[in-house]
Amino acid sequence: MSMTSTQQETQTRSWWRQNQQRITPWLFLAPGLLMFIIYVIWPIFSSFRLSFFEYDGLGEKVWLGLANYQELFSDRAFKTSLRNNVIWLLMYMLAVPAGLFIAIFLNQTVMGIRIYKSLFFFPFVISQVVVGLMFAWFYAPNFGLFYKVIEFFTGKGIAVLADPHLATYGIIAAGLWPQIAYCMILYLTGLNNVAPDQIEAARLDGAKGLKMLWYVVLPQLRPATFIAVVVTVIGALRSFDLVSIMTNGGPFGSTRVLSYYMYEQALSEYGYRMGYGAAIAVVLFAIMMVFISGFIWKMVRDEREGN
């Protein structure tokens, strides 16, 4: 009796010993993977499904087929949002060269430069809600500094956030502030690691200034540029906070972007059209997917080469 039980014990033990290497990673993955699947992966599919229904968040879901998507085609607010997203993407890209410019400006070793670097980075640490409030104050009609400065030079102030043609650009400027700081810190780190011998060699060959930057420095900064572009694209497409804080999509819906319009349709006082909201989210997801697959493709390639 006792003999068989010890035998069994050694058997399970040796089974564990043999399979330990195979099982352990899955045990370690289980909690995180489970949470991630429940809260991130499954909801993506669930939203796709929802976009074919009419749903107010409480009642029954009613099957609509492609009707939500058909409605998008004739929805002017959707077109405005989509156009604004394109503007955001293009304008946001300015953060990459601007960040590089400031990084080059600050890449010196004078007294106190460390404090300068961290103070330049400062805007990134602040919540976008606070950034939005700051810029709203900056643009405020009649007394905002920006208004005053324009008034001083042209005799007539501009209320940026009340002007349907300018409001989006005003919000993007606010968003660029922390984004430039982020790109700057990426490039500062990159510049810190540029191989000094190559720079010296190029200097001996007579390279300097922009030529040096373009042919010698930038190729070495490629990893920093890649990450700067990735975070800037994502930042541009995620623009929700600033629009919500600064204009609520107005004036006359001119500053809506897809992320904000989706929220408006699905959850705000304008109505609980969650199916329609999901269809907008699917479009935004599809746009993001174009970029994500590009990034992932590059990362997988690097990973394969690395091994």
Binding site: S47, F240, A266, M274, A281, F285, F295
Partner: peptide
């Protein structure tokens, strides 16, 4: 990387 809105509902 996904947009938050696709997870929202």
């Amino acid at each position: 990387f996904v947009p938050f809105q696709i997870l929202m509902v």
